[in-house]
Design a protein around this nucleic acid. Sequence first.
RNA 1: GCCCUCAUAGCUCAACGGAUAGAGCACCGGUCUUCUAAACCGUAGGUUGCAGGUUCGAGUCCUGCUGGGGGCGCCA
Length: 586
Amino acid sequence: MFESEQKNLENQIRQICGEKELPFNPIIWSWIPFSGNWGISASFFQLASEDAKQRSVRVNVPQRAQEIAQIFADEIALPDGFERIEAVRGYLNIYFSTKIYAQRVIDSVIDERQDFGRGERTGKTVMVEFSQPNTHKAFHVGHLRNVILGNSVCNILDFAGEKVVRTNYLGDIGLHVIKWLWCYMKYHEGEKPLGDITRWMGDIYAEATRRHEEEPDAEGEIRSLFARWDRRDADIVALWEETRQWSLDGFDQIYQQLNVHFDHLYFESDVEDSGKEVVDVLIEKGIATDERPENAVVVKLDELCGTKEKYRNLVVLRSDGTSLYATKDLSLAARKFEDFNLDRSIYVIDVRQSLYMQQIFKTLELMNYPWAKDCYHLAYEIVNLPGNVTMSSRDGTVVFLQDLIDESMERALAIVEEKNPSLTEEEKTVISNNVALGALKYSMLSRDNTKIVTFDWAAALDFNGQAAPYIQYAAVRANSILRKWGQGLPGVTALAYELTPVEVELIDLISRMPKEIQRSAAEFKPLFIANLAFDLAQTFNNFYRQCPVLQAEDAVRDYRLRLAAAARQAIVNCMYLLGIETPEIM
RNA sequence: GCCCUCAUAGCUCAACGGAUAGAGCACCGGUCUUCUAAACCGUAGGUUGCAGGUUCGAGUCCUGCUGGGGGCGCCA
């Protein structure tokens, strides 16, 4: 928000460096880290160190940095909007005139509302592929992190200025589907899903797996069904299409609950044939080695790249000529760029597939696709159970998504009933929905992508502390002041009193939002936004306690009303980026 | 064997290579006659796994080690 002022200061520093024959480095501005001090800061240790090297003298760097900082503190002509400049221990601290900047921050939030924090359009298009569920299977908590992370990253990239294509890639073919069809035809012929479709589909899949192990004839029956599928027997294809649609409807139910949408869907079945064509090309170009029928078709990456045990070998086609995940991924990658003229292609896939992703990207590079370098694997750690146990449907350890949501909603509802019994049933439902899902999402987004999330019921259902409900509640409190005020927000109000430290801190935090969004987008880390949202909420709660709004004299009241509105908006915007809704009341 | 990743307060986690390593939970004690107490305040808690290195400066970067997790040709 302070770019032009920063530029001005940088230019002055550059000029002074010239005059004093000092080397010039690009200035890295950061916030003054002491609460209650609002302004920007830069350090001059590096400059001092380089200066000494250039002149081949030994200096005490911190001391010299302080001297240099002092030079700038003396020479710089403060631009409008700054009230103080000082050199402190090698740092140059430049303090905002709160009068001017506080107002600029508040005014622009109120003016831009839900767009506050948006970056300039970059004109770039980025595709984010996430979720990637298998049809005919269940959806459990292990799948949740991907959806929540992918969705949030999409929101953030969009807000940061890119055009985002939200894409899902559905595993609608393969052995798991045949197994499901086999079990359905044999034991559930004619049945149709009711209610929780995905659960129903998942139950049949679990049954199929069990029967497959238990029944001696199963293996043969499944194999012959696979053969019929391979021939594209009309009745099998018809059943596949019908049952696949059930799964898709079930996923829609889930995505709707999670408030996640996709702009485009790809299906494995769509890229299977084209994938085999890609493999032919690979063989033709000598990139892939065809060792059929004894062995598979393999891209020997280490051999081709001259690396040792780095990329290993990528199998791109089975020895019987059927396709693999890699077969399809290779053609899908190209198709994405053709279909949407992308600048970048992001894959949100868990960290266990890191090597595989590198293999795919490397193979694309060997095929000389110029966009191969624009593919990026956004790896995240998985969700485990306590004791570092990975959820597995085989072991029956999975926590079904719907169970979690239901339980969470129930608890949230009980708390709303207790805190606010006078609300209508509809209001209570909306609130418990926002609170329950918010808590769930926040718990996954507020830790780094590289950290394993340990799922346990108590933690998932804990609405206290650094969690979404705390943040939502802060926004609700702000809203409550505004509602009680009962009139439109006062117009632009000049600051007519000395801001208290907590007010300055709150405004400071609000002003950081645009930068945090850019940083978060650059690193694909919703965590930064999650942290900012919490800081905002915490500071707002302090403000709420320390600074009376409606009781204050008119000028103060008007200013604080606007500040409360701005703080609320900033919190709501952060939460939106996390895919979390903030209720009006709770 | 090779590669990736994680290790910070009792627990769960933060901390753009910078100033005094911070929150939450849990524990103990306090705060509703004032805009919703789903809140706030206070006390306590640390050799950032170990050893080197780079740097003016390292929880952060590099190397090695220890320990946990993951991955390494016909699963997705």
